[in-house]
Amino acid sequence: MTINLFKYAAPTAFYPAAGRLIPWFGGLALILILFSLYWGFFETPERLGGSNPQKEYYRIIFIHVPAAWMSMWLYLVLAAWSAIGLVFNTRLSFMMANAVAPTGAIFTFIALWTGAFWGRPSWGTYWDWDPRLTSELILFFLYIGYIALHSAIDDTRRADRASALLAIVGLVMLPIIFWSINCPDPNQCAALHQRSSLSNIESNILTAMLTMTLGFWLYSFATSFARLRGIILLRESDSGWVRKIVEREART
Protein backbone atom coordinates (compact mmCIF):
# COMPACT_ATOMS: atom_id res chain seq x y z
CA MET A 1 0.00 0.00 0.00
CA THR A 2 1.40 3.36 -0.91
CA ILE A 3 0.28 6.56 0.69
CA ASN A 4 0.47 9.57 -1.52
CA LEU A 5 1.61 12.33 0.81
CA PHE A 6 1.12 14.97 -1.85
CA LYS A 7 -2.55 14.18 -1.73
CA TYR A 8 -2.62 15.99 1.62
CA ALA A 9 -1.06 19.10 0.09
CA ALA A 10 -4.54 19.94 -1.20
CA PRO A 11 -6.80 21.69 1.32
CA THR A 12 -9.68 19.39 0.29
CA ALA A 13 -7.81 16.33 1.55
CA PHE A 14 -6.03 18.01 4.42
CA TYR A 15 -9.13 19.46 6.06
CA PRO A 16 -10.77 16.14 7.09
CA ALA A 17 -7.39 14.50 7.86
CA ALA A 18 -6.48 17.31 10.26
CA GLY A 19 -9.91 17.05 11.85
CA ARG A 20 -9.34 13.38 12.64
CA LEU A 21 -5.84 14.03 14.02
CA ILE A 22 -6.68 16.94 16.36
CA PRO A 23 -8.34 14.85 19.14
CA TRP A 24 -5.36 12.46 19.15
CA PHE A 25 -2.78 15.22 19.34
CA GLY A 26 -4.80 17.08 21.96
CA GLY A 27 -5.48 13.98 24.08
CA LEU A 28 -1.88 12.80 24.00
CA ALA A 29 -0.67 16.32 24.80
CA LEU A 30 -2.94 16.46 27.85
CA ILE A 31 -1.73 13.07 29.12
CA LEU A 32 1.94 13.99 28.65
CA ILE A 33 1.55 17.42 30.27
CA LEU A 34 -0.27 15.95 33.30
CA PHE A 35 2.36 13.23 33.61
CA SER A 36 5.13 15.81 33.43
CA LEU A 37 3.46 17.97 36.10
CA TYR A 38 3.12 14.99 38.41
CA TRP A 39 6.69 13.87 37.82
CA GLY A 40 8.09 17.38 38.08
CA PHE A 41 6.44 18.17 41.41
CA PHE A 42 6.50 14.82 43.18
CA GLU A 43 9.39 12.77 41.83
CA THR A 44 12.12 15.39 41.74
CA PRO A 45 14.42 16.68 44.49
CA GLU A 46 13.30 19.86 46.26
CA ARG A 47 16.64 21.57 46.02
CA LEU A 48 19.58 21.42 43.68
CA GLY A 49 23.07 21.44 45.02
CA GLY A 50 26.33 21.40 43.12
CA SER A 51 27.87 24.32 41.31
CA ASN A 52 24.50 25.98 40.65
CA PRO A 53 22.45 25.64 43.86
CA GLN A 54 18.72 26.26 43.34
CA LYS A 55 15.76 25.97 45.65
CA GLU A 56 12.19 24.97 44.78
CA TYR A 57 11.88 27.71 42.16
CA TYR A 58 14.06 25.65 39.80
CA ARG A 59 10.82 23.74 39.02
CA ILE A 60 9.97 26.56 36.60
CA ILE A 61 12.41 24.70 34.33
CA PHE A 62 9.64 22.20 33.50
CA ILE A 63 7.77 24.84 31.50
CA HIS A 64 10.47 27.43 30.84
CA VAL A 65 12.82 25.26 28.81
CA PRO A 66 10.12 23.38 26.81
CA ALA A 67 8.39 26.71 26.01
CA ALA A 68 11.68 28.28 24.93
CA TRP A 69 12.46 25.27 22.70
CA MET A 70 8.97 25.44 21.18
CA SER A 71 9.31 29.19 20.56
CA MET A 72 12.39 28.55 18.41
CA TRP A 73 11.15 25.35 16.79
CA LEU A 74 7.80 26.85 15.79
CA TYR A 75 9.60 29.86 14.31
CA LEU A 76 11.65 27.47 12.21
CA VAL A 77 8.41 25.77 11.09
CA LEU A 78 6.85 29.18 10.34
CA ALA A 79 9.84 30.26 8.24
CA ALA A 80 10.04 26.88 6.48
CA TRP A 81 6.39 26.96 5.37
CA SER A 82 6.83 30.60 4.33
CA ALA A 83 9.84 29.65 2.18
CA ILE A 84 8.04 26.65 0.65
CA GLY A 85 5.07 28.90 -0.09
CA LEU A 86 7.25 31.50 -1.80
CA VAL A 87 9.22 28.95 -3.85
CA PHE A 88 6.47 26.54 -4.91
CA ASN A 89 3.53 28.95 -4.63
CA THR A 90 1.42 26.38 -2.79
CA ARG A 91 -1.56 27.92 -1.05
CA LEU A 92 -1.64 25.45 1.85
CA SER A 93 1.95 26.33 2.85
CA PHE A 94 1.09 29.96 3.57
CA MET A 95 -1.97 28.82 5.50
CA MET A 96 0.26 26.50 7.58
CA ALA A 97 2.59 29.42 8.35
CA ASN A 98 -0.41 31.54 9.34
CA ALA A 99 -1.74 28.81 11.60
CA VAL A 100 1.54 28.24 13.47
CA ALA A 101 2.34 31.90 14.26
CA PRO A 102 -0.08 32.57 17.18
CA THR A 103 0.90 29.36 19.00
CA GLY A 104 4.57 30.26 18.53
CA ALA A 105 3.95 33.75 19.88
CA ILE A 106 2.21 32.30 22.94
CA PHE A 107 5.12 29.94 23.68
CA THR A 108 7.62 32.80 23.24
CA PHE A 109 5.64 34.88 25.71
CA ILE A 110 5.52 31.93 28.14
CA ALA A 111 9.30 31.49 27.86
CA LEU A 112 9.83 35.18 28.65
CA TRP A 113 7.25 35.26 31.46
CA THR A 114 8.48 32.12 33.23
CA GLY A 115 12.05 33.32 32.72
CA ALA A 116 11.21 36.53 34.57
CA PHE A 117 9.69 34.62 37.48
CA TRP A 118 12.73 32.37 37.59
CA GLY A 119 15.15 35.25 37.29
CA ARG A 120 13.71 37.14 40.26
CA PRO A 121 14.54 34.50 42.92
CA SER A 122 17.77 33.29 41.29
CA TRP A 123 19.33 36.50 39.87
CA GLY A 124 17.43 39.05 41.95
CA THR A 125 15.75 40.69 38.96
CA TYR A 126 12.75 40.03 36.72
CA TRP A 127 14.45 41.41 33.66
CA ASP A 128 17.90 42.25 32.43
CA TRP A 129 19.21 43.12 28.97
CA ASP A 130 21.15 39.91 28.86
CA PRO A 131 21.86 38.61 25.31
CA ARG A 132 19.61 35.55 25.67
CA LEU A 133 16.68 37.50 27.15
CA THR A 134 16.97 40.33 24.64
CA SER A 135 17.17 38.05 21.59
CA GLU A 136 14.18 36.03 22.81
CA LEU A 137 12.23 39.29 23.22
CA ILE A 138 13.07 40.19 19.60
CA LEU A 139 11.75 36.76 18.55
CA PHE A 140 8.47 37.63 20.29
CA PHE A 141 8.32 40.92 18.36
CA LEU A 142 8.98 39.00 15.13
CA TYR A 143 5.97 36.75 15.76
CA ILE A 144 3.82 39.80 16.57
CA GLY A 145 5.21 41.57 13.49
CA TYR A 146 4.39 38.61 11.27
CA ILE A 147 0.79 38.44 12.53
CA ALA A 148 0.32 42.21 12.40
CA LEU A 149 1.79 42.57 8.91
CA HIS A 150 -0.40 39.76 7.59
CA SER A 151 -3.57 41.26 9.02
CA ALA A 152 -2.64 44.77 7.85
CA ILE A 153 -2.73 43.81 4.13
CA ASP A 154 -6.22 43.17 2.74
CA ASP A 155 -5.16 41.19 -0.35
CA THR A 156 -4.47 37.71 1.05
CA ARG A 157 -1.89 36.78 -1.61
CA ARG A 158 0.13 39.92 -1.03
CA ALA A 159 -0.21 39.53 2.75
CA ASP A 160 1.10 35.96 2.45
CA ARG A 161 4.14 37.00 0.42
CA ALA A 162 5.05 40.06 2.49
CA SER A 163 4.75 38.31 5.84
CA ALA A 164 6.57 35.22 4.51
CA LEU A 165 9.50 37.45 3.58
CA LEU A 166 9.50 38.96 7.08
CA ALA A 167 9.49 35.46 8.60
CA ILE A 168 12.47 34.39 6.48
CA VAL A 169 14.49 37.53 7.27
CA GLY A 170 13.71 37.03 10.96
CA LEU A 171 15.28 33.59 10.79
CA VAL A 172 18.58 35.31 11.56
CA MET A 173 17.41 35.52 15.20
CA LEU A 174 17.47 31.74 15.74
CA PRO A 175 21.27 31.24 15.69
CA ILE A 176 21.65 34.46 17.70
CA ILE A 177 19.33 33.10 20.41
CA PHE A 178 21.01 29.71 20.26
CA TRP A 179 24.56 31.01 20.75
CA SER A 180 23.68 34.00 22.92
CA ILE A 181 24.63 32.14 26.09
CA ASN A 182 28.15 31.39 24.91
CA CYS A 183 29.58 34.72 25.92
CA PRO A 184 33.30 34.43 25.17
CA ASP A 185 34.44 37.10 27.59
CA PRO A 186 32.33 37.91 30.67
CA ASN A 187 33.89 41.39 30.81
CA GLN A 188 32.59 42.28 27.36
CA CYS A 189 29.09 40.89 27.57
CA ALA A 190 27.31 40.23 30.81
CA ALA A 191 25.50 36.96 30.30
CA LEU A 192 23.28 36.13 33.24
CA HIS A 193 21.56 33.24 31.58
CA GLN A 194 22.83 29.79 32.48
CA ARG A 195 24.36 27.58 29.84
CA SER A 196 22.39 24.50 29.04
CA SER A 197 23.86 21.33 30.49
CA LEU A 198 21.58 18.51 29.43
CA SER A 199 24.27 15.88 30.02
CA ASN A 200 24.70 16.36 33.78
CA ILE A 201 21.07 17.08 34.62
CA GLU A 202 19.31 14.87 37.17
CA SER A 203 17.38 12.11 35.37
CA ASN A 204 13.98 12.78 37.01
CA ILE A 205 14.21 16.47 36.11
CA LEU A 206 15.15 15.52 32.56
CA THR A 207 12.19 13.10 32.36
CA ALA A 208 9.70 15.78 33.40
CA MET A 209 11.27 18.35 31.10
CA LEU A 210 11.34 16.14 28.01
CA THR A 211 7.78 14.88 28.59
CA MET A 212 6.59 18.47 28.83
CA THR A 213 8.43 19.31 25.61
CA LEU A 214 6.69 16.45 23.82
CA GLY A 215 3.36 17.53 25.34
CA PHE A 216 3.86 21.13 24.19
CA TRP A 217 4.82 19.89 20.74
CA LEU A 218 1.67 17.79 20.35
CA TYR A 219 -0.37 20.68 21.75
CA SER A 220 1.14 22.90 19.03
CA PHE A 221 0.09 20.37 16.39
CA ALA A 222 -3.46 20.32 17.75
CA THR A 223 -3.86 24.11 17.98
CA SER A 224 -2.24 24.90 14.64
CA PHE A 225 -4.28 22.22 12.86
CA ALA A 226 -7.46 23.60 14.45
CA ARG A 227 -6.52 27.12 13.39
CA LEU A 228 -5.57 25.86 9.93
CA ARG A 229 -8.99 24.29 9.45
CA GLY A 230 -10.60 27.66 10.15
CA ILE A 231 -8.26 29.41 7.71
CA ILE A 232 -9.04 26.79 5.01
CA LEU A 233 -12.80 27.29 5.44
CA LEU A 234 -12.48 31.07 5.17
CA ARG A 235 -10.15 31.10 2.19
CA GLU A 236 -11.95 28.37 0.24
CA SER A 237 -15.45 29.58 1.12
CA ASP A 238 -16.21 30.02 -2.60
CA SER A 239 -15.76 26.34 -3.37
CA GLY A 240 -18.46 23.68 -3.33
CA TRP A 241 -16.72 21.30 -0.91
CA VAL A 242 -16.54 23.95 1.80
CA ARG A 243 -20.25 24.68 1.33
CA LYS A 244 -21.01 20.97 1.78
CA ILE A 245 -18.88 20.81 4.95
CA VAL A 246 -20.55 23.86 6.43
CA GLU A 247 -24.01 22.46 5.69
CA ARG A 248 -23.09 19.14 7.26
CA GLU A 249 -21.54 20.68 10.38
CA ALA A 250 -24.39 23.13 10.86
CA ARG A 251 -26.71 20.15 11.33
CA THR A 252 -24.57 18.46 14.02
Binding site: E46, K55, E56, Y57, R59, I60, F117, R120, P121
Partner: peptide, 8 residues
Protein backbone atom coordinates in the same frame (compact mmCIF):
# COMPACT_ATOMS: atom_id res chain seq x y z
CA UNK B 1 7.13 25.38 47.49
CA UNK B 2 9.65 26.19 50.22
CA UNK B 3 8.60 29.86 50.27
CA UNK B 4 8.86 30.28 46.50
CA UNK B 5 5.19 29.51 45.79
CA UNK B 6 4.60 32.96 44.30
CA UNK B 7 7.23 32.50 41.57
CA UNK B 8 6.37 28.87 40.86
Amino acid sequence: QGGFGFYV
